[in-house]
């Protein structure tokens, strides 16, 4: 077997894997998309159809009704803004504060490092419902408005995450860079923000994305803390409580449409950031 055919087989295998992976990841999303173009009657059809079809005739029949009600829903559009504010603030704060902690834990030598790691982690080891009523009492007592209280409380889960992940990434960086910079007369803090931080950019972007999406998707806190401030409600709350014609009805088609619309900005965001780190500030930079 020549290297050329070997290479070709590798390519084919790779693409086969890529296709399998894409189908697996995307199929439920496709099913949501399919459902979002169906009426209630079409959703209840048996057998289920892979594209929206009319119940009796079987003709292809799309409805845009679900999307119309999503885009005419003021609360939904406002929720996109709210979710963005909350998720961006949480991400920026968690990354900034977490990067400090991660650097200290990953690269600096001091006493009590293990216990610090454990304490930070311990904060995320309670179920949300356990801290909910305590947090609600604090928030109503201090009169903190909904959006700041969401930002603050989400840090409880995203900050330990960023701190830990960044610790791992900082530790992975070769210690020599750090030491040589110190020998060159740079203070530890200078080495941190001038050398280490740029080197961990891909890690920062990744961690940030994960923290962002975590905050974007949270439901229980958001529902509780915005209970009397409907203008501050975030996407999951609005989507899960989407308007229905009758009180017990669950507007499934609209919920699917809302889910799809709300995931598009996130998809674009991920796409943009991924391109930024594709080049990889990795190998070359570490050497130099």
């Amino acid at each position: 077997m020549t290297t050329k055919t070997k290479h070709r087989i590798n390519r084919i295998l790779l693409w086969a894997l890529i296709i399998v992976m894409a189908i697996w990841m995307l199929f439920p999303f496709y099913w949501a998309l399919n459902s979002s173009f169906k009426t209630e009657g079409q959703l209840a059809m048996t057998p289920a159809t892979f594209i929206p079809r009319a119940p009796v005739t079987g003709d292809i029949s799309f409805t845009l009704k679900n999307y119309e009600s999503v885009f005419s829903n003021q609360a939904f559009l406002r929720a996109i803004v709210n979710s963005t504010i909350v998720a961006v603030s949480v991400t920026v704060l968690a990354l900034a504060v977490g990067a400090f902690a991660g650097f200290a834990l990953g690269k600096l030598r001091y006493r009590g490092k293990n216990s610090t790691l454990y304490i930070i982690l311990a904060m995320t080891m309670f179920p949300q419902i356990a801290v909910l009523s305590g947090l609600y009492t604090v928030i109503t007592t201090l009169g903190i408005p909904a959006i700041p209280s969401l930002i603050l409380t989400y840090l409880l889960f995203s900050l330990p995450f960023t701190a830990w992940v960044l610790t791992a990434f900082f530790r992975e960086l070769p210690t020599e860079i750090f030491q040589s910079a110190q020998v060159d007369g740079a203070s530890p803090f200078q080495t941190f923000y001038m050398i280490m931080l740029p080197l961990t950019a891909p890690a920062l972007v990744t961690t940030g994305l994960l923290a962002f999406i975590g905050a974007w998707n949270e439901y229980l806190f958001a529902l509780t803390f915005t209970s009397i401030q409907p203008d501050a409600r975030t996407l999951p709350v609005i989507i899960a409580n989407f308007p229905s014609q009758a009180t017990r009805q669950i507007p499934f088609g609209e919920i699917m449409a809302a889910g799809i619309v709300s995931s598009i900005p996130l998809f674009l965001l991920v796409f943009i950031f991924q391109r930024r780190i594709v080049a990889g500030l990795t190998a070359g930079a570490v050497k130099g």
């Binding site: 995307l26 439920p28 998707n217 991920v270 991924q274 391109r275």
Partner: peptide, 28 residues
């Protein structure tokens, strides 16, 4: 491979959809 950036964004689709929605997709 070609389209790698796109794929990197694509693999995040399941994680991006709020649990409130994705659970209902699967339930359905």
């Amino acid at each position: 491979f070609k389209g790698r950036g796109f794929m990197r964004a694509l693999i995040l689709v399941p994680w991006v959809i709020p649990t409130a929605v994705s659970s209902q997709i699967w339930e359905y």
